[in-house]
């Protein structure tokens, strides 16, 4: 479906399919940015949320992952460069009542890591005392809800070389997601590839 065809459509509009045990929901917004959410068919857990925004020069942009991550092996012949797989990797995978991040490949002791809330910039900051890792995490959901982060609510642990950070979802968001889950159940998505209407 090209962009011209959708001119008379009401934004945002959504379509969905079920594939590989995931219900994939594609939403296009008025500024032509696209969002794809993938839910587990069995328990309706949100596995992936990714965005693609229109670029200035035109053409298709890159998908940006908000939740979940893409497994893309590095190919030295074609790819330019990519962080080595030994580096810490952040993946957000929420539970039903809290935001959760897992940072794999954190090989140092627990006392090296320091996770805090930066109130001024409304973000979570991970520091290391040996200056090997530093990461600022923002929570787009909280920004969308215009809610402040509370330092006391942040929890984190370190085991099996993985840093697990959780922050409770505000009740308003939990409520919102429950409504959305209900809608999702009603959403009639077909199995397999969708046929375009004009075909």
């Amino acid at each position: 479906m090209t962009k011209e065809d959708s001119a008379d459509k009401k934004y945002p509009y959504t379509s969905s399919i079920v594939k590989d045990g995931r219900k994939k929901v594609h939403t296009t917004f008025e500024d032509q940015s696209e969002m794809v959410e993938e839910f587990d068919v069995n328990n309706n857990k949100l596995l992936v949320r990714k965005w693609r925004r229109p670029t200035k020069l035109g053409g298709e942009g890159e998908w940006e992952f908000e939740i979940g991550a893409e497994v893309k092996p590095f190919n030295p012949m074609n790819d330019l460069f990519a962080p080595s797989t030994d580096n810490p990797v952040v993946v957000r995978s929420d539970t039903s009542d809290s935001f959760q991040w897992r940072i794999r490949n954190c090989f140092f002791d627990k006392n090296v890591y320091q996770v805090t809330v930066d109130v001024e910039n409304q973000s979570i900051v991970i520091r290391t005392s040996n200056k090997k890792y530093y990461k600022v995490i923002q929570i787009p959901d909280m920004i969308r809800l215009k809610q402040q982060l509370i330092p006391q609510s942040l929890q984190w642990s370190h085991s099996n070389n993985t840093l697990i950070i959780s922050y409770p979802k505000p009740p308003a968001l939990v409520q919102q997601e429950r409504v959305k889950e209900h809608q999702l159940r009603q959403l009639n998505s077909k199995e397999g590839d969708v046929q375009c209407p004009q075909q």
Partner: peptide, 9 residues
């Protein structure tokens, strides 16, 4: 603050 190893193409 940090250090990262990159694979090069």
């Amino acid at each position: 603050d940090m250090e990262t190893v990159y694979d090069l193409g």
